[in-house]
Nucleic acid binder design. Structure first.
Lengths: 138, 138
DNA sequence: AACCTTTTGCAACTATGTTGCAAAACAATT
DNA sequence: AATTGTTTTGCAACATAGTTGCAAAAGGTT
């Protein structure tokens, strides 16, 4: 069952505002990762750029969305699953970027394998980005 | 044995210029990944920003350096090993970002593991980014 | 409704990246 | 080493991305 946008905000101790609800709904409707620019163009009503930046930052801080590094230097944001909480992301799944449609997916079911990194290095987080063609574009 | 900067350029069919040599030497001296901004500040003599952008792009195209996606949305560039050639990068190693000193390393010896991505998805390239603490900062 | 707090929008700014064009540097040839 | 043609570089101007301070608006609480 899906948590409503309002509940997500409540659970994070954030006040419920129009803009935050709108941005959360964009994520839920599209069920894919969105960039700042995506949100700007998807929101028909005028959203101030600054508001979007600040809202996304708040969501990241609260564990509502996580960021995805991409090769072309544009940060993507995607909704976190339940496991994430304030200041603590658990998005250890693989991110897939389709070269055809440009969609970034979270592949929740593909786990990150163990890496044997060299002695002396301490591993905190592993990010896996995969490029290829998604099932819709095949 | 290390290939000289001049040879690297020759092998790629590029003309030998002061700027290109200087930028290559920065990579060789530092033996870590550099951002555009790093190069700008490391080169004591004035380098035009545009020249740096274009030189890096040329190097990427020719397989001399490869780009590393990072979580904070700044592209890093690192020297390729011999295996890379024009239009064909073989940098399938793990990239490690130290949270203390900010250094990005290419862990040449850590191979990218196989992933079993869902049916319908075709995999072209896998990027693995690891955060943690490097052996110098431990 | 009245109050206080948080969020939003605006303006101005910094940083990052791109393009066109003329001057300079490079490469090849005599 | 001078001439010529090609490539590279620097400049100017522009475009996009992201940040900060502050006043107005909206949210939360009583």
């Amino acid at each position: 069952m899906k948590t409503s946008s309002t509940e997500i905000l409540k659970n994070s101790g954030l006040s419920i505002t129009d803009k935050r609800l709108k941005i959360l709904e964009l994520f839920q409707k599209n069920s894919k990762a969105l960039s700042h620019a995506d949100i700007e163009s998807l929101s028909e009503k005028h959203f101030d750029r600054v508001t979007i930046y600040r809202t996304l930052q708040t969501f990241v801080d609260k564990g509502i969305v996580h960021t995805i590094p991409t090769a072309d230097n544009s940060i993507m944001y995607a909704l976190c699953k339940e496991a994430c909480s304030e200041g603590h992301h658990h998005d250890n799944h693989v991110h897939f970027l389709c070269e055809e449609c440009g969609t970034t997916y979270c592949l929740e079911n593909v786990n990150i394998p163990e890496l044997n990194i060299p002695k002396g290095f301490t591993l905190h987080q592993t990010n896996v980005l995969v490029n290829g063609v998604c099932k819709n574009c095949k």
